[in-house]
């Protein structure tokens, strides 16, 4: 026969076990909704180099490399997916008065400390996970920027996903440093 105190100990132990299991597991909201559920956190854009006098004034004849007229900068953010299906960021855009071209790029640093930046097809946001766009990793590249983007400005960015969903976010411009 088990003594009463032993029984209590047993029950307490069992409770502890359950409690620790609960604390450990991710509180998976057993949502019935299926598909990706996206939110964007802390979108920001790096301020551009202040170009007081626009270079276009000095053009002589043909403009061979039009890409060099406007500056470039990057947009960064965290895209969270609380849904149970992955999604992919496939396109980003801004108003033409901000930048002529918008691309999705990834920067990698190889084993020789060489930085390589490449356009990518898309950025996957895993189910119940995040995609982090940050310096030295994925970013949205704004090219042929049409005007100075100064700290405190806001840039509206439209994000398109493979699922067909579109999100528009207001990204705060932060100082270059």
């Amino acid at each position: 026969m088990l003594t009463r105190s032993r029984w209590i100990t047993l029950v307490l132990m069992a409770l502890l076990l359950i409690a620790s299991l609960a604390a450990c597991g991710d509180d998976e909201a057993n949502n019935t909704q299926t598909g990706p559920a996206l939110t964007v956190n802390e979108p920001w854009v790096r301020a551009t180099i202040p170009m007081a006098s626009e270079e276009s004034g000095e053009t002589e004849g043909e403009s061979t490399e039009s890409g060099e007229t406007g500056g470039v900068t990057g947009a960064f953010m965290t895209i969270a997916n609380t849904g149970n299906e992955a999604d992919t960021l496939i396109r980003a855009s801004v108003d033409a008065s901000i930048a002529g071209t918008v691309e999705i790029h990834e920067t990698t640093i190889d084993e020789n400390d060489v930085m390589k930046m490449r356009p990518v097809e898309g950025i996957e946001i895993p189910a119940d996970g995040n995609a982090v766009l940050k310096p030295g990793s994925y970013h949205i590249m704004l090219l042929n920027v049409q005007r100075d983007l100064n700290p405190g400005d806001t840039v509206q960015i439209t994000l398109e996903f493979a699922s067909g969903q579109t999100l528009t976010v207001d990204a705060e411009v932060r100082a270059m440093e």
């Binding site: 400390d113 060489v114 356009p119 090219l143």
Partner: peptide
Amino acid sequence: IFYQRVSYDNPDNYLVDHTAS
């Protein structure tokens, strides 16, 4: 130092791989 211009499908732009040390 390693560095290299990289062209891609945007004819108006090129990228430059370079040592980041």
